[in-house]
Design a protein around this nucleic acid. Sequence first.
DNA 1: CCATATAGTTCAGATTGAAAACTAATTGGA
DNA 2: TCCAATTAGTTTTCAATCTGAACTATATGG
Lengths: 419, 419
Amino acid sequence: MVNGSQQQFFKSAGSPTPVNESAAPGRVGDVRRRNLSLVLDSIARTGDAKPSRAQLAAGTGLTKAAVSSLVADLVESGLVSEVGLYRDGERGRPGQGLELSSRRGVVGMEINVDYLAVGLVDLGGNLRFHSIVESRNRGMAPQEVMQRLGSLVAEAVAAAAVENVAILGGGLAVPGLVDEQRNMVLSAPNLHWENEQLQPGSLLEGAPLGVRLSNEANSAALGELWYGGGPADFLYVSGEVGVGGGVIIGSDLYVGPGGSAGELGHIVVHPEGPECSCGGAGCLETFAGQEAIFDAANIPDGSLADRTEQLLAALAARDPGALKAVHDAGRYLGVALASSARLMDIDAVVLGGHFALLAEWLRPALLMSLERYAPGLLEPDSLGVSSLEHSGTLLGAAGQVIRSVIESPFEFLLASKLA
Amino acid sequence: MVNGSQQQFFKSAGSPTPVNESAAPGRVGDVRRRNLSLVLDSIARTGDAKPSRAQLAAGTGLTKAAVSSLVADLVESGLVSEVGLYRDGERGRPGQGLELSSRRGVVGMEINVDYLAVGLVDLGGNLRFHSIVESRNRGMAPQEVMQRLGSLVAEAVAAAAVENVAILGGGLAVPGLVDEQRNMVLSAPNLHWENEQLQPGSLLEGAPLGVRLSNEANSAALGELWYGGGPADFLYVSGEVGVGGGVIIGSDLYVGPGGSAGELGHIVVHPEGPECSCGGAGCLETFAGQEAIFDAANIPDGSLADRTEQLLAALAARDPGALKAVHDAGRYLGVALASSARLMDIDAVVLGGHFALLAEWLRPALLMSLERYAPGLLEPDSLGVSSLEHSGTLLGAAGQVIRSVIESPFEFLLASKLA
DNA sequence: CCATATAGTTCAGATTGAAAACTAATTGGA
DNA sequence: TCCAATTAGTTTTCAATCTGAACTATATGG
């Protein structure tokens, strides 16, 4: 990066505005980097259709010659496989179908307050193995939780061996703010974790891409985007113990300058509202968090599964307290979404987690509230409910690793050539 | 875009997921496109220091050979000029200083509710000519307003001739939602404009880059970023007749999928608040808009300048009504900023327009409110006040055109070679 | 006045995609 | 049965562009 010959800028002391270290210069080789990604992405998007080189050339705008050369590299690295000829009853030489290799995969992992989950996702996005176990992780030491997670991961690794899937890496989602670079959980209030250093890499020794830490709501949003048919722009609302959010803009996750964007739970929905655990007041979470809803609905303490079941039963029985609790949550969620949609110019919402379960009762109040506070901004059609249930988060966590390969295959090729 | 030879994808009817039309493929020539921009941007950033080719090579990571070739093209196009040798009392051949040409400029224009403003900004960002006139534009026909603006522009054009500045294009900011592509003002409630088709190009016939329409708050935010020393990430709050906002993330304007992000004025700050002109209720604008503040402070009707003067006088005289009006505005602005900062992960704010004038009285209430609703999120130091006053918006409007040249000089070179 | 230092240019070499010609594989119809 | 037509994919030639190294240009200081 730095030039060998210690170039000096402006010699007069004080260095008045040296030439800024701008973005990296374009090199001839960057073109191939980009086109490798373009072709790989085209194959990924085309999905089940298994495109031929000629179709990729037409779809990407590259020449057949260029595509052939690029595909050769991708096949050699193992990311792409040829899946035999295909025909459709017309003349001409048949094409070689191409797909993301089903013999390469990533392990998706989720630590949440009440459960642990692991899944094996192949490059094509198929969930090849999936396992969830209840685990009261609140207040448990990270090491202990990681150890429990490790035994779940071992199952996934075993399944991968049986299915002949090579594991490239893993993604681990946790319900809190993370520093991805340093593998730290900066703050996960619902787990009672603060500045915890994790060793996610040790969950998958030897995986070339390591294990990538991520936020639960963000991963769920990405899961919805990539594997749940989410639109290119939407706000994902994660109703786990806390109320989280993930912002998808232009098919990309918006994380903000510090990486902690989407904190929907701490939008102020009533300036005279109750104190919040975050130190503020009137936050959405104080009206629409799981705890707040259970309390307002008079559901006694107990395990999450029990309480949820009781709440759903009460709602089905039209219990006025329960109905009002959910109605209020929907109303305030509407306030938060109206403000968010106006601020970020977003016109679609996907409800996940707890909110997906309650959607039947929540939706009417939410729509009414949106109509009151931001009339015409969000159509009822664009207020969706996640269908991925508990696999959305781990699909998203794994997907981030898969995506990083699709976006930078060149680096992956390099690594696999060295090995 | 489409291939000549009508490539057919999957022939079986129904075309199951044709290969997606992804991003454009990388061509060898893209490298030069990028590096031209890189070098030009380096020169722009280095600003007054007027870097030499060798310094640019060191700063960009390109070789001297590449920089020389790139600079030759930029000089030929007139975007960059050599400004003589410079020395600093050391040995060696002196470098040729390079700068953005001061003989190329862009006209910045602003239509607001109570005034019109025009400025001539050269590529280096110097405001070479500036003129503001009062004009009660509310309810006036767009044609009439554009005509008045035209005579102001004529002054700027004359000034450019005198100063020997060639005008490349213009930027026109209006206080409303615009469709930049189609030169339409979709909605400017405070002007009483709705779906108005403008002809901004006719303001500067013959300017190669035409005239670009933009939103007032967004332009002001960009002005603050480029010419007011704003940080890389901040929320600009524009207190004109309405309350607007501009979101700067990573030194880029965030406009959202539909281009209308930053609508700070219609964030809900109190769910039981009054009806708003937007159809919603409890919006920030109903508490902190100019009208709301003047009303709450019991300032009688009149021109904006008069009312502002009266309000400032009342505040200086410690009039309780005026103090409370501004205090309340600050409090609710704090609610909106707390929510926005949490949602978008922003940690700096710049107050502009009316809010800049009232900053002395507004700031304490605002800080108190931020501390109440989002403790620790925004440091007092990161709550700034714009110093650009009425030139910020037109600087930003012109800057967008300048920036587009810096980001895509290749297209500009092409055009100037054809001419 | 020349050794040294720095700026900038020239030229060979490498990478890469475009364009076009070519080879490969398949079908429909003579 | 076999060949024209059609489509897939490869090979070859060419142009664009950067790097690296050698070279020229221009200054200072002893």
